[in-house]
Design a protein around this nucleic acid. Structure first.
Length: 357
DNA sequence: ATGTTC
């Protein structure tokens, strides 16, 4: 499967406008896990989920009192779509037009998206952790989501331009980037609202630790930097997600390697594609049921059985290996290590969703 | 990735 990503990267590298490319240890087909510098703007490289990213919050929960099953049950309310008026109010308070997919605000979506309760188990860099407002033993909320139907609707209008992309001077480029920037803000707001909804459900407070986008375009020197599954690293702190049965990390980018294009890995990265996972996970009910629990004693809420298998921890590389490679390459150091308690993905099965329509 | 995909 990694071979596919290399073939894709080589193809992109051959495009006239494309210059420097940085690939990270979480590289997988898409290509995902890359930063690509180009003279042109390529909506195709970013795809549907413009502004997708990860936001980490510190909660007021106490680690020693956590009851994973209780928290898991409470998080199920995240499934519900927002009341339109409420979504519009959220958009307005964020300074965004209130007619941008208002009912989707505050929803996680599908695929690899999730909302996870974690414990900050270790702080290898106590000082930086303190600077970020967290300490060992804190209970964190880790939200991975994007721009939902809003980003998808934008991309639908620009997909036709394909891998070649659009020239910088093209007026359609300006129009796209304007919408793109709205989607980046929308996605960030979405993660914030997801966290607020989760906090209400869990009866706790949340405060922002770090918000990180890993699917966006930015001006970079004379060109356009496309980060696809690569976190923006010209910041103090970057979250790196494990799979749901693995450690996640808070990283400090070293910022000393120009070849990294001010970017970092964003997660563990897929090892196996979704389709092949159905054959890799044994069909026995006991095996499938076990996917709702983790080796950390945690819970996974994912009533969509297909998604539960496709997003199984076994589908991902080891996040600790990804971290080790980033440290070895002197791209980052580790500030915090988080272990999962509850991963919420969806409280609704596919059949149920179809039945609703 | 997406209220998906009839």
């Amino acid at each position: 499967m990694l071979g596919d990503a290399e073939v894709q990267l080589n193809k992109l590298a051959q495009l006239e406008a494309v210059g420097q490319i940085a690939a990270f240890p979480d590289l997988h087909p898409g290509p995902v896990g890359v930063a690509i510098l180009s003279d042109k703007v390529h909506p195709h490289m970013i795809g549907n989920d413009i502004g997708c990213g990860m936001t980490v919050f510190r909660t007021s929960l106490s680690a020693h009192k956590l009851k994973p099953q209780k928290l898991a049950d409470r998080l199920r309310v995240l499934q519900d779509y927002t009341d339109p008026a409420e979504g519009q109010a959220h958009l307005r308070s964020a300074g965004l037009p209130d007619d941008l997919a208002a009912t989707a605000i505050g929803t996680i979506g599908g695929g690899n998206h999730f909302c996870e309760v974690q414990v900050l188990a270790e702080t290898p860099d106590v000082e930086l952790a303190a600077k970020a407002g967290v300490a060992k033993g804190d209970v964190l909320l880790f939200v991975h989501s994007g721009s939902r139907s809003f980003g998808a609707s934008i991309f639908a209008d620009y997909a036709e331009f394909g891998p070649e992309g659009l020239a910088a001077e093209d007026e359609r480029t300006t129009a796209y980037l304007k919408l793109h920037d709205l989607a980046v803000r929308w996605a960030s707001l979405n993660r914030q609202i997801i966290a607020e909804r989760a906090a209400a459900a869990l009866r706790c407070d949340v405060e922002l630790v770090v918000d990180s986008s890993h699917n966006l375009i930015e001006r970079y020197g004379d060109g356009f930097l496309h980060r696809k599954g690569a976190a923006k690293a010209d910041v103090d702190l970057v979250p790196l997600a494990g799979s749901r049965d693995a450690k996640s990390f808070l990283l400090k980018p070293t910022g000393t390697k120009p070849e990294a294009l001010a970017s970092l890995a964003h997660g563990a990265g897929r090892k196996y594609d979704r389709a092949s996972m159905h054959g890799r996970i044994a069909k026995q009910k006991s095996v499938r049921n076990a996917l709702s629990r983790t080796s950390f004693g945690g819970r996974v809420v994912c009533e969509d059985k297909q998604l539960l298998v496709e997003e199984a921890p076994q589908a991902y590389k080891n996040s600790e290996d990804v971290l080790a490679q980033l440290v070895e390459a002197e791209l980052a150091t580790c500030v915090g290590v988080m272990t999962p308690v509850v991963t919420f993905k969806t409280a609704r099965g596919a059949e149920e969703r179809r039945g609703k329509r």
